[in-house]
Simulated assay, not measured.
Amino acid sequence: MKITLDLDILVAEGKLTSSEAERLKTHAAADTGQLAINVLLGLGAAAVAVGVGVLIPSLETVIALGAVLFVAGFVMRIARVEQWSVFAQIIMVIGALALGGGLFALFGEQLWVRVALTLGLAVAGVVAASGLLVSISVLAFAATITIDADLWTPTHYLAAAIGSLSLLTLVLYIASLRLPPAYERLAIIAMRTAILLVNVAFFIGSVFGDEFLGWSGLYFAIAWALALLAFGTWAVFANRRWVVNTVAVFGAVHFFTQWFMALGAQPFSILGGGLLLIGFGLALARFNRWASARKALRA
Rank of each mutant, 00 (worst) to 15 (best):
W290V: 11
I136P: 02
V198G: 03
L24N: 08
Q83E: 10
G264V: 09
V93Q: 12
I78Y: 04
A88P: 09
L41Y: 02
E82R: 14
G281C: 00
S164H: 08
L132D: 10
F231N: 14
Q258P: 05
R114V: 03
L168K: 00
T26S: 14
E60C: 01
A49F: 10
L226K: 00
A29D: 14
A47N: 03
Y157P: 06
L282T: 06
L97W: 02
T26G: 13
V134R: 12
L35V: 03
D6W: 02
V39C: 06
V50D: 06
F107C: 02
L24Y: 08
F74K: 00
F231D: 15
F255C: 07
L16V: 11
L7T: 11
L276F: 05
A161Y: 08
S135H: 07
G251M: 05
G279Y: 01
I278R: 03
G163R: 03
R241Y: 00
A235P: 06
V86N: 02
G108T: 04
L35Y: 06
R192G: 12
A190G: 14
E13K: 15
S269E: 08
A262K: 04
Q110T: 15
W234F: 15
V93P: 04
G251Y: 07
L196D: 02
L40E: 08
I204W: 12
V52E: 09
A252I: 01
T118I: 09
